[in-house]
Design a protein around this nucleic acid. Structure first.
Length: 425
RNA sequence: GGAGAGGUGGCAGAGUGGUUGAAUGCGGCGGUCUUGAAAACCGUUGUACCGAGGAAUCGGUACCGGGGGUUCGAAUCCCUCCCUCUCCGCCA
C-alpha cells in the first residue's frame, strides 16, 4: 500500500507505475474521494468539538445541581447530524481503502522499463569451472522420465490422491527432497546468520492482505471457506506477518528469518504454459528468507539476499543466471526484483527457482510493521524476501545436471551428508 | 464442542456513565549528584488523521480487542464477532 498523502503529491508518478504494471487506474476516483473525505472530516470534527464542549458544560451544571435540560435538548440534533455524517465518512473511507489496496508498488528507479519477461535484463550468470552447457548426447532423460525410471517421483498417483500438480516423492526421492530442504535451511542459518521460523501453513485474511496477495491474487489462493483461512502460497506470508501491528527497535534491525514451508497455489488460468511435471505444480516446497530492515539499507540488503540464494546454487554446483525484472514483469507489491534461474540442460532452458524482492514500505504499510529510531517517531520498515530456494524447479536442474549417461542420479556432494547415500539407481 | 474468567498506553496494572488520553509501577528520554557508571532524587514521556506554520510547534478529532447499539455524554451499560486463559469433553 502506498501512503495516501504520497499519492496526492505524486499523482503522475503513481499513474505511471500503475500503467507500467498493467494495473487498473482508479486514481481519479481515489483523489475525488479523498477531497470529499477531507471536506466531511472538517464538518464533522467541528460538530464533535461543539458536542464535547456541551458535554463538559452539562457535567458542570449537574455537579452544581443545576438544570441542563436546555443544552441536552439542543445537543440531540447535533448528535443526530454527527451520526449521519459519520456514516457517510466511514463509507468513503472504506472506498478509499479498497482502492488503495489495488494500487501497486512503484518500481525503483534502477528497474528497467519493459513490457514483459522478454525485456528482463540478465545481470550475471554462473557455472562451475569447466561446465559444458551442451549435453554429450541425446540419451538424457527429462525429470519425468528419470523420476519414473528411478521410482523416486510419482505424478500419476499424486493425481489420483489429490489432482494434477500434486507430485509424490517416493523412497530416495523423498529423502533427497528432505535433504535439500535441510541443507538450505542449515546453510542460511549457519553461514548467513538467519533465524529459523517454522510457520503455520494456514493464515487468516489479514495476513494475506498484509503481504499483498489479497485482493489482487485471491483467485490464485486456496481457501478454507469454513474458517476463512488460506493455505499459504509462500512462507513469505506468515513470516512477514510475524511482526504485523508491531513496533520494532532500531537496534534489532536488520532481522533475518528463514523458514521452510510447503506452498499451495491454484495457478488458475495458467494451463498450457510450462505445465509439465515439476515446472508448474499446486504444492511445492520452498525455503524462504525474509528480512525486516531500515529504509536506507534495503537496497544493499536486496543484493545480499540474492547472494545468499546464489550461494546455495554454488554449493550445489548448479549453473544459473540472475535476471533483473523489468517494470512490466515486476509483481504487484515489489519495487525491485531479481529472479534466479537455474539451467536445465535437457529442457535446454533456464527455470525460475527464486525471486528476491524489495518491497520497500509497501508491505509494511499494509501490515503496519514499524520501527523506532532512538527518540524518534515510528517509521515503516522495509521488507524483503527471497526464495532460498524453491525445490521443485531446483530438483529438475539437479536431475538433469547430475544424471549419468546410464540414467542414474548422483547426489550433489553438499547433500550427501543429509541423504546418507551418494547415488540413486 | 460445553462451562467460566479476561482482553486498558512500550510492558505490568488501576479504573463500573460526566475535567480520564486515562492513577500507580517498570521501562525510555532529559537533568541533579559522580572522575565515570550505578543508586538516589527531580522533570518528562502514546499513536493516527484533519487544519495552521518555513520550522520548532500549535489547534481540533479519534483511539481502552474489532464492529454495532443505548445516551446530551461510554474504557465504564447492551448486542455481536475475534482472541487469550482455566476446567470439562474429543483428539494427533
Amino acid at each position: 500500500m502506498l501512503d495516501l498523502k504520497f499519492i496526492r503529491e505524486n499523482v503522475s508518478l503513481v499513474k505511471e507505475a500503475i500503467k507500467s504494471k498493467h494495473e487498473k487506474d482508479n486514481l481519479d476516483q481515489l483523489l475525488e474521494l479523498d477531497t470529499k473525505r477531507r471536506e466531511l472530516l472538517k464538518l464533522v470534527e467541528e460538530l464533535k468539538s461543539q458536542k464535547n464542549k456541551a458535554s463538559d458544560e452539562v457535567a458542570r451544571l449537574k455537579r452544581e445541581g443545576r438544570d441542563a435540560s436546555e443544552i441536552i435538548q439542543k445537543m440531540k440534533s447535533v448528535s443526530d447530524e454527527i451520526s449521519v455524517l459519520d456514516k457517510q465518512l466511514s463509507e468513503i473511507e472504506k472506498q478509499i481503502n479498497d482502492i488503495l489496496l489495488t494500487i501497486p508498488n512503484i518500481p525503483h528507479s534502477s528497474v528497467p522499463i519493459g513490457e514483459d519477461s522478454t525485456q528482463n535484463v540478465e545481470v550475471r550468470r554462473w557455472a562451475p569451472e569447466g561446465y559444458s552447457y551442451e549435453l554429450q548426447n541425446n540419451h538424457y532423460l527429462d525429470h519425468l522420465a528419470l523420476g519414473k525410471k528411478l521410482g523416486i517421483l510419482d505424478f500419476e498417483r499424486g493425481a489420483k490422491i489429490s489432482g494434477s500438480g500434486f507430485p509424490v516423492y517416493v523412497g530416495k526421492g523423498a529423502t533427497l527432497e528432505r535433504a535439500l530442504i535441510n541443507f538450505m535451511l542449515d546453510y542460511h542459518i549457519q553461514k548467513h546468520g538467519y533465524k529459523e521460523i517454522f510457520p503455520p501453513f494456514l493464515v487468516n485474511r489479514d495476513s494475506m492482505i498484509g503481504t499483498g496477495q489479497i485482493p489482487k491474487l485471491e483467485e490464485d489462493m486456496y481457501h478454507c471457506n469454513e474458517d476463512d483461512l488460506f493455505p499459504i502460497p509462500t512462507a513469505e506470508v506468515p513470516i512477514t506477518n510475524f511482526y504485523r501491528d508491531e513496533i520494532l527497535m532500531e537496534e534489532n534491525l536488520p532481522i533475518k528469518f528463514v523458514g521452510y514451508s510447503a506452498c499451495f497455489r491454484r495457478e488458475a488460468g495458467s494451463y498450457g504454459k510450462e505445465t509439465k511435471g515439476f515446472l508448474r505444480v499446486h504444492q511445492f516446497n520452498k525455503v524462504e528468507m525474509v528480512k525486516f530492515v531500515k529504509p536506507e539499507d534495503s537496497y544493499d540488503e536486496l543484493e545480499k539476499l540474492v547472494n545468499d540464494a546464489e550461494d546455495i546454487l554454488k554449493e550445489l554446483k548448479i549453473p544459473y543466471r540472475i535476471m533483473l525484472l523489468c517494470t512490466g514483469d515486476l509483481s504487484f507489491s515489489a519495487a525491485k526484483c531479481y529472479d534466479i534461474e537455474v539451467w536445465a540442460p535437457v529442457e535446454k532452458k533456464y527455470l525460475e527457482a527464486s525471486s528476491c524482492s524489495n518491497f520497500e514500505s509497501f508491505q509494511a504499510r499494509r501490515a503496519n510493521i514499524r520501527f523506532r529510531r532512538k527518540g524518534g517517531k515510528p517509521e515503516f520498515v522495509h521488507t524483503l524476501n527471497g526464495s532460498g530456494l524453491a525445490t521443485s524447479r531446483l530438483m529438475v536442474a539437479i536431475m538433469e545436471n547430475y544424471q549419468t549417461p546410464e540414467g542414474k542420479l548422483i547426489v550433489p556432494k553438499a547433500l550427501q551428508k543429509y541423504t546418507g547415500f551418494e547415488i540413486i539407481d
